[in-house]
């Protein structure tokens, strides 16, 4: 398959970026989007040009590194997939594909398609954890967890922190990411002790990082590769309200 790629090139965080057009030739339909970029980069290196920089790690949809905006959709045209899961057969032969980095003020571009997502790390550091003494592993059945709570917490924990929610949101809001983390721990007994503090600190950090305000249009849920539901945002709103009324 052949494609015409319009790729955002930006040599550093401080420099001006621009789109460059490349022709990707003889790409197998079963190649992933990242493999297609690898093939393109091979040819760029052979021609003595700078390869396109992009984030990637596991290439099996669980690390959350490889986010990019492909033809206006976070992680490409399919649903429930990270960029590394997108296959080139999902596109038409000869199609033009525009590839851009995530766009949001708290996610500045580092180079080409790579963005700095440390804002997410700082939100986690603000409260997305449980404080526990590291001792011997406790007996697994000592703390009972109901099956529905365990399932719901697991659904929230599936968030890989890729940033597609922020990238897809017209307001660059990080509510779905923060909600997934708050919801995950609020549902489990281990998360109860810091429950109120956690949501207040994480929301405060989210606001401090400069993410936008959520307007409940649910573009985040539609583009999330792990199908994190916006019901977690409702739970976070509830948790926040509860903490503000009953705590501190």
């Amino acid at each position: 398959m052949n494609f015409t790629l319009h790729i955002w090139r930006q040599s550093s965080a401080d420099s001006e970026g621009h789109f460059e057009t490349y022709e990707a030739r003889n790409i197998p339909g079963e190649a992933s989007f990242l493999e297609m970029l690898d093939i393109l980069n091979d040819s760029l290196v052979t021609d003595g040009k700078e390869p396109v920089a992009f984030d990637h790690d596991c290439r099996e949809g669980i690390c959350g590194s490889c986010g990019m905006m492909i033809n206006g959709r976070a992680h490409g045209p399919g649903r429930k997939q990270a960029t590394c899961d997108a296959r080139m057969r999902m596109f038409e032969d000869g199609q033009s594909i525009t590839v851009e980095p995530w766009r949001a003020k708290p996610f500045p571009v580092i180079k080409d398609l790579m963005v700095d997502r440390r804002a997410f790390d700082r939100i986690i550091q603000a409260g997305g954890f449980i404080s526990a003494r590291t001792n011997a592993i406790p007996e697994a059945n000592a703390i009972p967890v109901s099956k529905p709570a365990a399932d719901e917490a697991m659904d929230a924990a599936a968030c890989i922190g890729c940033g597609a929610c922020v990238a897809a949101c017209p307001n660059s809001s990080a509510m779905l990411f923060v909600a997934a983390k708050v919801s995950h721990l609020a549902l489990l007994p281990q998360g109860q002790i810091e429950r109120g503090d956690r949501v207040q600190r994480m929301v405060a950090q989210m606001d401090k990082e400069g993410f936008g305000n959520c307007s409940n249009n649910y573009a985040c849920e539609a583009e999330c590769p792990k199908e994190i539901s916006v019901t977690h945002i409702a739970r976070m709103n509830r948790e926040f309200l509860r903490a503000k009324i009953y705590e501190r």
Binding site: M69, G72, T98, E100, P170, S172, G212, N213, S215
Partner: peptide, 22 residues
């Protein structure tokens, strides 16, 4: 809020398919 949210993305997307999702 609409005004503030507009400035949370300083460089806009060349292609943005919000209509596919919302």
């Amino acid at each position: 809020l609409w005004f503030v949210n507009r400035y949370k993305r300083d460089t806009g997307y060349k292609k943005y398919r919000l209509r596919d999702n919302v």
